[in-house]
Design a protein around this nucleic acid. Structure first.
Lengths: 144, 144
DNA sequence: CTATACTTGAAAAAGATTACTATTTGAGAA
DNA sequence: TTCTCAAATAGTAATCTTTTTCAAGTATAG
């Protein structure tokens, strides 16, 4: 938490930007709700508890900023809105998500195992891979 | 093309739905523009050439229908709209896409190579995988 | 031929996100 | 600390994609 906030402060400074209470609080909500895949509206509601005067537009702007600064990543679950999760520094790219088509549960996958495929693609297509977004659809253990 | 149209007719009949000129023309445009990753507006404009009286809402409805019937698949490139491509029957799940972060070109990847990872995930998470959506971000050969 | 369920076009509505504008504020300089 | 000014904010309007509504049209089984 502290390190994440420090990272934000640092990257904002590099950019000539400011660490405002609104930005601090928005990041705090995302960190504290790791694994929840909150959308913008949900983040807005949670941020309002400690920062009631914040506007929705500011939350949108902040999330965009946090994504550009590589502090959060955006997830698209095809439900008509963007969702966000914190990027932990121990992973160099986004982890995968399992989406249950029956109960809509989202499960995070710790295994990466894409190295081989990525090396193959880089060679075959002469393409430098920087990151990936991988979603698997199917049925979770509880819904089988 | 003929087989794809037959498949549509067949699946519509199963559902008690009709094969209308609007649906026929929409599918035709997608088939004829394989590899273009057209969005709804673009499909609408192309369909209008041969079917000028069609409404945009019908195109939206038809694309939804085609996706449900597993005839096309939707691609989300985070550019604020849905794009579509035909599902060829020789692939049992969606192929991957490479997205160049410099020129925004989309490259289709023929290699799948996800079998091993999927088996691993199914075992580890007790999750039945039916399909996947995989995007790789980076720099294409021309932009290096 | 006719009843009925399915489709359609046009326009309105919804929902997410961005743009605008006057005002406020964080943080470095003095 | 106080001053200064670019950066940020709140609130609202505007935009853009997609869905819904509804009256009218159409295919098809019987």
């Amino acid at each position: 938490m502290v390190e994440t906030m420090e990272r934000l402060k640092e990257r904002l400074k590099e950019k000539g930007s400011k660490l405002t209470p609104q930005r601090r609080e928005t990041l705090k909500v995302i960190v504290e709700n790791q694994g929840e895949h909150l959308n913008t509206e949900e983040i807005y509601e949670l941020v309002r508890k400690d920062c009631p005067e914040i506007g929705l537009a500011t939350v949108y702007r902040t999330l965009q900023l946090l994504e550009e600064m590589d502090i959060v990543s955006r997830i698209n679950l095809d439900d008509g809105c963007s969702r966000y999760e914190i990027k932990t520094d121990d992973e160099d790219h986004q982890h995968h998500h399992l989406i249950c088509q029956k109960c809509n549960k989202i499960i995070e996958v710790k295994i990466d195992l894409l190295e081989e495929l990525e090396r193959e693609i880089e060679k075959e297509y002469d393409f430098d891979i920087k990151d990936h977004k991988v979603k698997f659809f199917g049925t979770c253990s509880e819904c089988k």
